[in-house]
Amino acid sequence: MSRLPVIPTLLVALAVATMIALGIWQLQRKDQKDAMLSRYESAVGLPAVVWPTVPDPAALPLFRRSSLNCVRVVKIETVSGSNAADKAGFAHIATCQTGEAGGPNAKVAFGWSERPQAPKWGGGPVKGIIAPSGAQLIKLVSTDAVEGLDILAEPSPSQIPNNHLLYAIQWFIFAAAATIIYILAVRKRSKAS
């Protein structure tokens, strides 16, 4: 039997070890995500909180009820969204100033429509549920109807995916495939010698 090529074997072993480590990391992330989702589920029924003007990324009050006063609408954007009847369409999200003298901005998802044209909305007091919102971290999803629009679907922790187990399995399959392919390549090489 011929000897294994040293450098290719080391490279494949390093790649396989990295893939296994990534799979284990994804399993750890799954446990962390499960705990986070459980925390969010328990927040659903808790009392309302004051709208955080400067949200703490480590302690976001997601899925809690809150309210704010949209003093001035800075802009309105339209994105895909669902209404309370789970019909697909467009969610209308306003960037609002919440203070009289150009105070901090807040995102407010204020309604749903079948068409993408942004409606006119002048702001005012808004009650709703705090939901995740990308770079802004949080937005307030209104639970009150705005004239001419339907109410948006209420945000729920069940809308946050937890795919870490699938990612872990994927990394373990990659590691197994790399190992099998390398073994077959070495066998083919040794038979050719």
Rank of each mutant, 00 (worst) to 15 (best):
M1F: 08
S2R: 13
S2P: 14
L4D: 03
L4S: 07
P5V: 04
V6G: 07
V6A: 13
I7P: 12
P8M: 09
T9E: 13
A13S: 15
A13Q: 12
A13E: 04
L14P: 14
A17P: 10
A17I: 06
A17L: 14
T18E: 10
I20T: 00
I20R: 08
L22T: 10
G23P: 15
W25D: 11
L27M: 04
Q32I: 08
K33Y: 10
A35I: 04
L37T: 01
S38N: 10
S38P: 04
Y40P: 08
E41N: 07
A43C: 04
V44W: 03
G45Q: 03
L46M: 13
P47N: 02
A48W: 06
V49C: 02
V49H: 02
V49N: 06
W51V: 01
V54G: 06
P55Y: 00
P61V: 01
S67P: 14
S67M: 13
N69E: 14
N69T: 14
C70K: 00
K75E: 15
K75M: 12
E77W: 11
S80Y: 11
D86G: 06
K87A: 14
G89M: 05
A91T: 05
I93L: 00
C96Q: 12
Q97D: 08
Q97F: 07
T98M: 01
T98E: 01
A101V: 10
P104D: 03
P104H: 01
N105W: 03
A106L: 02
V108A: 01
A109S: 03
G111C: 13
G111A: 01
G111S: 13
R115W: 13
P116C: 07
P119F: 00
G122D: 11
G122Q: 11
G122N: 12
G123E: 00
G124M: 11
G124L: 09
G124S: 05
V126D: 06
K127H: 10
G128D: 09
I130C: 07
A131K: 08
A131Y: 14
A131P: 15
A131I: 15
A131W: 15
G134W: 09
L137E: 07
L137A: 05
K139L: 12
V141L: 05
V141F: 02
V141Y: 03
S142T: 02
T143W: 09
D144S: 13
D144G: 03
A153C: 04
A153I: 09
E154K: 12
S156E: 04
S156C: 08
S156Y: 05
P157C: 02
L165P: 06
L165R: 12
L166I: 07
A168G: 14
A168K: 09
I169R: 08
Q170K: 06
Q170D: 12
I173H: 08
A175V: 10
A176W: 05
A177G: 14
T179R: 03
I181Q: 05
I181T: 11
I181D: 07
A185C: 07
V186D: 06
S190M: 12
K191T: 05
K191Y: 10
K191V: 04
A192R: 13
A192N: 13
A192D: 14
S193K: 14
